[in-house]
Design a protein around this nucleic acid. Sequence first.
RNA 1: GGAGAGGUGGCCGAGUGGUCGAAGGCGCACGCCUGGAAAGUGUGUAUACCUCAAAAGGGUAUCGCGGGUUCGAAUCCCGCCUUCUCCGCCA
Length: 425
Amino acid sequence: MLSVRTITENPQLVAERLKVKNFEAGSLIDEITGIDSRRRQLKASLDNSQAESNRISKQIGIYFREGKKEEADRAKEQTSLIKEQIKQFGRELAEEEKRLTELVELLPNIPHESVPPGNTPGDNKIVREGGSMPSLGKDALPHWELARRCDIIDFELGNKITGAGFPVYKGKAAKLQRALINFFLDEAVEAGYTEIMPPVLVNEDSAYGTGQLPDKEGQMYHVGEDNLYLIPTAEVPLTNIFRNEIIPADELPRKLTSYTPCFRREAGSYGKDVRGLNRLHQFDKVEIVEIAHPGSSYERLEAMTGYIESLVVKLGLPYRIMLLCGGDMSFHSSKTYDFEVFSAAQKKWLEVSSVSNFETFQSTRMMLRYREKEGKKIHLVHTLNGSALALPRILAALLENNQTPEGIGIPPPLAERCGFDIIGF
RNA sequence: GGAGAGGUGGCCGAGUGGUCGAAGGCGCACGCCUGGAAAGUGUGUAUACCUCAAAAGGGUAUCGCGGGUUCGAAUCCCGCCUUCUCCGCCA
C-alpha cells in the first residue's frame, strides 16, 4: 500500500498519477486526509493523557517510599478520570487507524512515469521481440494433443486424483520439467541470485506483507485448520524473508531465487483459455526476487528483464516483451513487463513471465527498510520480482513449436539435462 | 499429541511490582593515546508514532504476540506462538 504520508503530502499529485491506472482517487484521498488529521489529534491527546497518568503513578511510588500513605491514596483518586480518558482516546484512535488502513489499502500503487496510459492489453507497448517463428504444417497439433499422443501429460488422471487443473506429468515430460527447473535455477545462481527453498504454506502476516491479503483472498487455497495459505507464487515467502528487517544499504540489492510449486484457485476463469497447460491450479515456477535501493530499482528492473530474456533466447522460443499500460497493470505494481512466448499450434501468445517493480508498495506493509551508510537514516526499500520462468506455458510452447514428423525436439540446454533430445511419437 | 523448562536491545546476560528503554559485558561508530597497530581510555550506539518549518529537543508505545489485574507490569494472571529436554508417533 501507499504510505499515508505520501498521500497526505502530495494529494493532488497522487490523484493525478493514479488516473494512468484509470483510478479516480480524489474523494478517497480527501477522506484519508481527514481521517489522518483526526488520527494525529487523537494520538496527541492520548499521549498527553498517558504522560499525565505516568506522572501521577511515579508520584505515588515516591509517596509510598516516603511513607506518605494519605497523599498516595489521594493521588490514586485522581487517576480514575485520566484512565477513563486513556481508554476512550485509545478506542477512538484504534478505530481511526483501522479505518485509515482500510481506505489506504483501496488505493492502487502509483505507476511509474514511463508507464503508458491505456485500458486494455491492446494498449500495452511491445518493447522488444526476438526468436524466430517456427513454420509448422497445417496438421500441427496443440500441446494437449501432442501430450496425449506421446503419453507424457495426463489431464484425466489429474482429474481423478485431484480435479481439473492438476495435470500429471509422466515419463519424459516429468523429466523435462525437472530439467527446466534445474536449468532456470542454475542460470539464476550463475546470475548472482541466492537459491532458496522456502515453505510453500505461509501465514497471514506473510500473505498480507506481499499484498495477497486482504484483496486477493479468494485466489489462494486456505488451510483453515491451521490458518495457512498455499503460496500462489514464491514471491510471497521470498519477499517475506525480509519482513520487519533493516538491511544495510551496502548489502543492496539482495537477490534471491527459488523454485516452488504455485497454487491458484483461479476462481471465475473457465473456457478455452484453460485448455491444456494454459491455466492450471497447480504449476511450477522459478521466481527471482530483488530487494533494491530506491535509487537503482529501475536499473534492477531492466537487469531482471534482460536476464529473463536470456532464458527465453536460450530456449529458442519466439517471444515479445510488453510494457504494460496503466489499465492492464496489477494493483500492486509501479511498472511491469510481461514476457509472452508464441505457442505456434494454438497460434497464441502465452504469458510466461511478469516482472515488476513494486517500489514501496510491499515494503510499507512489511516494514522492510534499509539503513543509509552515511547518516544512518532509515528508508523503505523497493521490492521487485519476476517469473524466471513459469513452466507450463513454456512447456506448451516447447512442445508445439518443436514438433516434427518424428516427435518433439528438445532444445540443447534441456537436452543435456534430460539425456534425450527428442520425445518420439 | 503429552509432561517439564525457557523466550529481555545486533549478540551474551542481569533484572520477580515503582524514577527500567532496561545494569554489566561483547560487538559497532567516533575521539584520545601510538611512528602505525594492539592494549588502554572517553563518548555514543533500538524502532514506530505524535510534536517541531527543519535540526536540536520533548512526549507516547514497544522486554515473543494478544488480553487481564494494578495508581503503576520485563516482573503477577489467562490465551496463543515459538525454542529446548523427555515420552509417544513418524517420512
